[in-house]
Design a protein around this nucleic acid. Structure first.
Length: 134
DNA sequence: CGCGTGACTTGTA
DNA sequence: TTACAAGCCACGC
């Protein structure tokens, strides 16, 4: 796990799920996060959450930690949005996949749902009109 | 149609 | 049991 994280090249970022899978723990995104929290000396800054398609989103709840991470990433040359959005299609770490064209979309053929969290299976009751709010 | 945020679900510590 | 450095999905813009 740590080896995988440390393998992330400077200027690139990876999602917790991706790191976890590469470490041999599918769906172990939370495990990866926990490991990063426990072990220091790791470039946890390069490990981010995930949003839509090729966009990464900092899921860090701690505003201070998130700010630090953002600063470090920017220093490495990674563009971080104000909301913590990072373009994985450009800065996303591409381990062994050779066919993946960073210049566009990530070759999901090799990755195939790195996250695979069942997060969304039986949710979303008929919310009348608005998406949230009751 | 594409990107972004919001909200729900799951797992570990 | 609760909290969290996550993830997916659906809706909004």
């Amino acid at each position: 796990m740590h080896a995988v994280i440390r393998a992330i090249p400077r200027g690139s970022v990876a999602t917790y799920g991706q790191v976890a899978e590469l470490a041999g723990v599918p769906g172990g995104a939370r495990i990866a996060a926990a490991s990063l929290k426990q072990e220091v000396n790791l470039p946890w800054q390069r490990v981010i959450g995930k949003a839509s398609g090729r966009r990464g989103r900092i899921k860090i709840l701690d505003p201070v930690g998130a700010a630090i991470q953002r600063g470090l990433l920017e220093k490495e040359g990674v563009e971080v949005g104000d909301r913590g959005l990072i373009d994985l299609g450009v800065y996303g770490w591409l381990p062994k996949m050779k066919t993946a064209r960073r210049n566009g979309r990530v070759g999901k053929t090799t990755m195939t749902r790195a996250g695979s969290d069942r997060g969304a299976s039986l949710r979303r009751p008929p919310r009348s009109g608005s998406k949230r709010r009751a």
